[in-house]
């Protein structure tokens, strides 16, 4: 659609004018890391972030989400979608959002995700500082960058804002932004064209080869070795932008007959994930950590490829950094398997 120019010193007032319209969720510093959070003070905005602890999907799919409340046998939905701008989403996370969009709408439309997703306006941004564990430059390359409404690219003296949907146009229509010049547009195109070159880690294997080799290693003993130090802590699942599993629980409230149903992010590495009730007792169909560890890699490299058009990994590197035992990095694990 159209390209606009925002001078460096105009970024904060741009964000401010969005905040005047609706809540803006954007990267801000937290300790040594960054998180997506609702901007209170525009000075907190950090478009130079490397990556966030949790991925931006949390805006539509919160880590813990009340689904319904019940009382006297009557249930009421807790859905209450609030329009928001999600600002500063990196390309790998945009790709991941397009995956969860698909996963939450195919077969069964998950209204608890979709309702929040539909009212969000996503403004992407190019990676200014790559995360040290990231390998987005060499995975999910065939996947089209879609799902966002606009995209901010940092150029030498400011930003080029590409607006790609009507929702995006509507949001910025009355902000009086200047059109980007031909030079500014081409500078931005140049920045994005070589963005992947700066990505610190490379995965030197084709997705098809990886998928085949990983599947064929299903019975290999390599999984015992790779998962030896695993805590079953699920951190690798919980920080992943393409993971979409959750657990649902009902809970009584303090009244005589009231309560609520909520869901919480869950992950296949935790042992209770694969526990099912069987005739009054329970059964765990992935009892040991090697099976669970293997399952995650099957999911990330093979099982979902046909459905998503790419492996269910966008190379953000979050899992690699989150795993205290440092055994969750797909690059290391895939390389080990390819070389086995």
């Amino acid at each position: 659609m159209s390209g606009y120019y925002i001078p460096s010193e105009g970024l904060q007032s741009f964000a401010q004018s969005l905040m005047a319209k609706m809540p803006v969720v954007a990267p801000v510093a937290k300790g040594k890391r960054f998180i997506f959070d609702q901007l209170g003070d525009v000075a907190e905005l950090r478009l130079d972030y490397d990556t966030t602890v949790l991925p931006p999907k949390k805006v539509f799919f919160p880590p813990k989400q009340d689904l319904l409340e019940f009382d006297e046998g009557k249930a009421t939905s807790c859905l209450d979608p609030q329009a928001k701008v999600l600002l500063g989403v990196h390309p790998y996370d945009i790709k991941a959002i397009s995956m969860t969009d698909k996963l939450f709408s195919d077969n069964y439309a998950d209204s608890n995700y979709l309702a929040n997703r539909e009212v969000a306006v996503i403004i992407g941004s190019n990676v200014q500082t790559p995360y040290e564990r990231a390998f987005y430059g060499s995975i999910a390359q065939d996947l089209e960058l879609v799902g966002h409404d606009a995209f901010l690219t940092k150029i030498s003296d400011g930003y080029v804002l590409d607006v790609v949907t009507e929702k995006g146009e509507k949001l910025i229509a009355d902000l009086g932004l200047a059109d980007a010049s031909a030079e500014q547009t081409s500078e931005a195109e140049g920045v994005n064209a070589k963005a992947d070159e700066d990505c610190p880690v490379k995965l030197p294997f084709a997705a098809g080869d990886v998928s085949e080799k990983v599947r064929n290693s299903f019975k290999s003993e390599i999984w015992d070795e790779l998962s030896k130090d695993c805590f079953s802590c699920g951190s690798c699942n919980l920080v992943c932008p393409t993971c979409y599993c959750f657990d649902v629980q009902d809970e009584w409230g303090l009244g005589a007959s009231n309560g609520k149903r909520y869901r919480r992010w869950d992950g296949c590495l935790s042992s209770e994930f694969s526990e099912v009730s069987v005739q009054g007792g329970s059964e765990n169909f992935r009892e040991n950590r090697a099976e669970r560890y293997r399952h995650r890699f099957m999911r990330k490299t093979a099982y979902l490829n046909d459905k998503l058009g790419a492996p269910a990994c966008v190379g953000c590197g979050r899992c690699a950094g989150a795993c205290t035992a440092d055994i969750a990095d797909p690059v290391n694990t895939i390389t080990r398997i390819m070389e086995s």
Partner: peptide, 15 residues
């Protein structure tokens, strides 16, 4: 039955 890391991640604490 899972470890504290799960709850720590869910509230987005920096490790």
């Amino acid at each position: 039955s899972y470890p504290v890391c799960v709850e720590c991640k869910l509230r987005e604490t920096v490790c």
